[in-house]
Amino acid sequence: MMSLYLFSLFNGLVMGQAIFLVAAGLTLAFGIMKIFNFAHGAFFMIGAYVAHALTGQEAASLPLFLGAAFAAAIVVGAMGVATDLVVFRRLAGVPTEYTLIAAFSVMLLASGGAELVFGQGIHAIYPPAALGGLIQMGIPISVYSIFIVGAGVVAFLVLEIGLNRLWFGKLIQAVARDPWMSDVAGLRVQRIKLISVAISFALAGLAGGLLVANQSLSLDLGHSYLLLAFCAVIVGGLGSVKGAFFAAILFGLADSLNYILLPTMPGVAVYALLIVLVLIRPQGFYPELSQ
């Protein structure tokens, strides 16, 4: 019984890190552009397809697997640059509903385009042999899930340190807080925004490349994590990487404990948690400081 809970806790952690990998880019994009990017899940899916196209069903080695994930990040990041230049840049100051719907139409374009390019087939993907094994630590743990947790934590640390300690992160924060003042102070606001959007999209592509081995690759892939990532971003506080990290873990744990405590009703706990948390704290764990 104990090991069952332990197993479920660990699964929740893995799930939480997977959600965070998707949510990180989403919350970053919101912080900088004030646009809730519905298309994020679609680009996550495109990243997964790109990685799959490079490695095939099973990556031959770990470096190849990682290389494919980074290649997916670069491809999707480039798409992000294009999206920003064509769409997002023009939406500054437009009412929220319109930006949401613009992002939604980008999502339709991206997922429809993916359907045209990659077809409707469903592919089973396996992690490379180096990540394929199981470790016995009281409970059986797959190496791949440890890898996911590691990737999530690394992504979190890089973003947190990058945003709060490095000069470029501070520039991004300045632009996010007050674009006008940053402009006056001589920052190239548009370029910094463009780079942050590229980073946000690249994170989606990277997450796609890293998480693809977790499940079957199909056009629905975007949806499975997207909603949970939305929840994590909202509950964590829009624009906050730290908040998204903790909220993602919370949602991962809720979902996995759901299977033990309420086995007849899978998938309910996350929604219940979301509703309760938003009602208690609508501004999120770490509300953004900008106006």
Binding site: V87, R90, L91, V94, Y98, I101, A102, F104, S105, V106, M107, L108, L109, A110, S111, G112, G113, A114, E115, L116, Q120
Partner: peptide, 22 residues
């Protein structure tokens, strides 16, 4: 009869509307 095409078209039309004729 074209899978995916309608999404692309609808997305494209909508984007044009939001950007050019809100």
């Amino acid at each position: 009869t074209f899978a995916g095409l309608s999404e692309v078209l609808v997305g494209g039309i909508l984007l044009i509307v939001v950007l050019l004729a809100p």
